[in-house]
Design a protein around this nucleic acid. Structure first.
Length: 480
RNA sequence: GGCCCGAUGGUCAAGAGGUUAAGACACCGCCCUUUCACGGCGGUAUCACGGGUUCGAUUCCCGUUCGGGUCACCA
């Protein structure tokens, strides 16, 4: 039975890299009919952020990554919040001491700092010097009885090589002499992440550990722990980071977009998830658009990339546009409405027609207010806008066109798109000119913009007869 | 600095000892068109460098360079 876990620290927000790790972890569990577990790693009280746990729940639920065991729903291997497990680690650490794979260390902070200083001055890699490594049982008992503060350290073999296999990076070997006697239990009696992680993963029967590549170099130490306990080592899947550019990781600290930020900007959750899946993983086929269900089927660990991937907003935007186009009209209208309202106060506009125009050309919902603001009020514009080489228009012939259009529209009874279209094309036929010569100036006069969500006919319809005529008159005045 | 990992177009990336080195985004051009967009068609552009191994390496090996990670009583 495959069991995977997503184990975030509640330190604030869901950044994109985190979300991707969660996704891959989720996918691996689901495609193997395994279990997906959510565990909160809050052993560091210093960094705990209020509300962060809720944010994790909310994001996971919103994106559809449901978990089978977790703090809120329980499970057979709880508790699922590390701070609630505080009682269990010390015994395991003592077991390791018994087995000779760990030891009590009574070195105080001063001595350690001094050691670190010496190492840094002499440019030697910093490692604990093993001062307490070989204390006798009696010495240890004495200090313990005297209440001297202590930590428990892992006793790394002085010789040999530790080798393990990562499903992404392959076989990796490290000399044990490179490894530090890391602290397992802190002075406060709580485990370090390094220790809690190993114990919890084992107790929760985790079979596949998916995590960031930054843990790759501490993995040998974990494996030594597993071996000392006689526990089975899980499969490892280390993921290269998501980057902002060639040198910097994507992070909130740099002001980079988090999941919530992207949603707020008007990206669809499915599109974000889909894009993130593609960042650092390549499907077998050439398809790129997948629902979560489809990702479960298509995902394959062998497609995970070894090198970091730069987050590309342009491609996300494109993908988002594809998702928007695929939306049912009704759904899109509901989504678009709040954005339209941000800049359009008028209530007499045919929102259905407007939404239909928008759906085909919006990539990110956040673009909408700026696209439609002209409906409320004609922006100030330069008459250069009337010049278009392909349409062969210029301010002079535009003036003529608008003058010709005005009476035609004034006499129009039914203000429907069909009627407007018919009337204008009759005019075009009567004058024997190119469509653009009439329609380009019209669109410009109606919008004052270079780009609009529709052509002259659509805009006239949306604006209504009165406003349309008023804007044409304004255009005529401006060009005269 | 020690150790670990990585390197295919601007970006995401497939690929394999012999290929015209896929595809997508972006970019450019053309077509369509009532602008932009959409759609259709086409195009520019990539194997970091140097040595090997081999009949043949972008692919395998070794170095170099560059990049990333790690070296906490943080996770």
């Amino acid at each position: 039975m495959v069991r995977t876990r997503f184990a975030p620290s509640p330190t604030g927000y869901m950044h994109v890299g985190n979300l991707r790790t969660a996704l891959y972890t989720y996918l691996i569990a689901r495609q193997n009919n395994g279990k997906f577990i959510l565990r909160i790693e809050d052993t560091d009280q210093e960094r705990y952020v209020e509300g962060a746990v809720d944010l994790i729940y909310r994001t996971m639920k919103e994106t559809g990554m449901d978990w089978d065991e977790g703090p809120d729903i329980g499970g057979d291997y709880g508790p699922y919040i590390q701070s609630e497990r505080r009682g269990i680690y010390l015994d395991y650490a003592r077991e390791l001491v018994e087995k000779g794979a760990a030891y009590y260390c009574f070195c105080d902070k001063e001595r350690l700092d001094e050691l670190k200083l010496i190492h840094s001055i002499s440019k030697v890699p910093h490692k604990y010097d093993g001062h307490c490594r070989n204390l006798s049982k009696e010495e240890v008992a004495e200090k313990l009885a005297a209440g001297v503060p202590y930590v428990i350290r892992q006793k790394i073999p002085t010789e040999g090589v530790t080798t393990f296999t990562d499903l992404v990076y392959g076989e990796i070997s490290v000399d044990n002499s490179e490894l530090d006697d890391q602290i397992l239990i802190k002075t406060d009696g709580l485990p370090t992440y390094n220790f809690a992680n190993v114990v919890d993963d084992h107790l929760m029967k985790i079979t596949h550990v998916v995590r960031g590549k930054e843990y790759l170099s501490s993995t040998p130490k974990y494996n030594l722990l597993y071996e000392a306990f006689g526990w089975e080592i899980p499969a490892y899947i280390h993921c290269a980071p998501v980057m902002k550019d060639a040198h910097n990781k994507l992070s909130k600290r740099n002001g980079d977009a988090s999941y919530e930020d992207l949603i707020e900007k008007g990206y669809l959750k499915d599109a974000v998830l889909n894009y993130i899946a593609l960042l650092g993983w390549a499907p077998k086929s050439e398809r790129e658009i997948f629902t979560l269900e489809e990702l479960i089927r298509e995902f394959d660990i062998s497609g995970i990339s070894k090198s970091p991937a730069i987050f590309d907003t342009e491609k996300l935007a494109w993908l988002n546009g594809e998702y928007i186009k695929a939306l049912p009209e009704e759904t899109f209208m509901e989504m678009a409405l709040p954005y339209i309202r941000q800049s359009v106060r008028r209530t007499d506009i045919d929102m259905r027609a407007l939404a239909a125009l928008l759906q085909g050309r919006v990539q990110v919902l956040g673009e909408i207010p700026e696209m439609v603001d002209f409906l409320d009020a004609l922006p100030a514009y330069d008459i250069d806008l009337y010049t278009h080489k392909k349409m062969k228009t210029n301010p002079e012939n535009s003036l003529e066109s608008l003058k010709a259009v005005l009476p035609v529209l004034e006499n129009l009874q039914d203000w429907t798109q069909e009627q407007i279209h018919t009337a204008l094309f009759e005019l075009i036929a009567r004058l024997d000119v190119k469509n653009g010569l009439i329609l380009w100036p019209l669109r410009t006069a109606l919008s004052g913009k270079q780009f609009t969500p529709g052509g002259g006919v659509e805009l006239a319809y949306l604006l209504g007869k009165e406003e349309t005529l008023a804007r044409i008159r304004q255009g005529i005045e401006k060009l005269s």
